[in-house]
Write a protein that binds this DNA or RNA. Structure first.
Lengths: 172, 172
DNA sequence: ACCTGAACACCGTTCAAGT
DNA sequence: ACCTGAACACCGTTCAAGT
């Protein structure tokens, strides 16, 4: 089994899921793959680039409804896809900051909003909706990481109300 | 000059401002204060708690208009206060996740929204507005940290449009 | 081409011992 | 009460050398 980019990304995802971002170190990753730390740098530029790739993978896995879906449904899916992955929101935000256009989800959302609202503010609306979603998801994730409440599987009401309000705010 | 919590926080703020979050380490902080690393832990629980305190300080310094201000003005002030402080958005978000009620700015904003809109959704609206502001500020900060554009001192148009849209979205 | 070994320059945190 | 010295268990990244 040779070392390659895909095996590294898969193991990184498992590590993130199981132990969180703090334990996702290059050295830990190397150990898990049975390889010397330096070997990773033959397949990956550095840790930042690895995390950005990981984020694209996570977010692009969110199913995007072909036509008839409502934004409520879309962002409910975003929520339930990201919430079980530890610190997924932070990782996605990192990718968003580094290179927004690497996230095809954002492009999909933008064209969706353009078609369904006709507003030329669609790119701004898409970005704003993503910021709100990541903000709430991150807050919920850290809250249940501190052990104070169980992880919700469905998007909670405040989250959905916030998304809805932001959406209607851009309708005029 | 004895070591105390306030001196530590001041030096931490300077370090954050000058070199960014990556160089704000406990060891670096100790060196800057002319003290052994372990000494810090007599005045501060750990790094997380220090960063949370730092965030409260940064956000609570934003001037809050007594009565007649518009939200546009409030969030323009948030922008111009946070944008020059490197990684201020991340630090504030950390504090927000750990303990939202430690940030009195959020409470001020909530009562402001309650008075000016009468909506019982005010707490949710306040939180959403803060998420949006932090999201855009963080994006702008990293963009100019990568050297591609100069740091804006005034809140840019997209930011203000987004804030405005979110606000009106919560008006009904 | 791909990987190891070993090093470089760091981390956060703890804790006996000193004053 | 407050701080030092020293240790513990780690980091990300580079790079000569091996295959």
């Amino acid at each position: 089994m040779p070392l390659n980019r895909d095996r590294i990304l898969n193991t990184a995802f498992t590590l993130l899921n199981q132990y969180g971002l703090a334990d996702l170190s290059m050295r830990r990753l190397a150990t898990e793959l049975g390889v010397a730390p330096g070997a990773l740098y033959y397949h990956v530029k550095n840790k930042q680039e690895l995390l950005a790739s990981l984020a694209s993978r996570i977010l692009n896995d969110v199913p995007f409804p072909a036509e008839q879906g409502e934004i409520d449904r879309i962002f409910a899916d975003v929520y339930s896809h990201l919430i079980p992955v530890k610190e997924a929101a932070e990782v996605v935000r990192l990718a968003l900051a580094l290179d927004p256009h690497q996230l095809q989800f954002l492009d999909h959302l933008t064209t969706y909003l353009t078609h369904h609202t006709g507003s030329q503010q669609a790119p701004l609306a898409a970005l704003t909706l993503v910021h709100v979603a990541l903000g709430f998801i991150e807050q919920d994730q850290t809250r249940y990481l501190l052990g104070n409440s169980p992880p919700p599987t469905e998007a909670p009401l405040p989250y959905r109300q916030a998304i809805q309000a932001v959406f209607t705010g851009f309708l005029k």
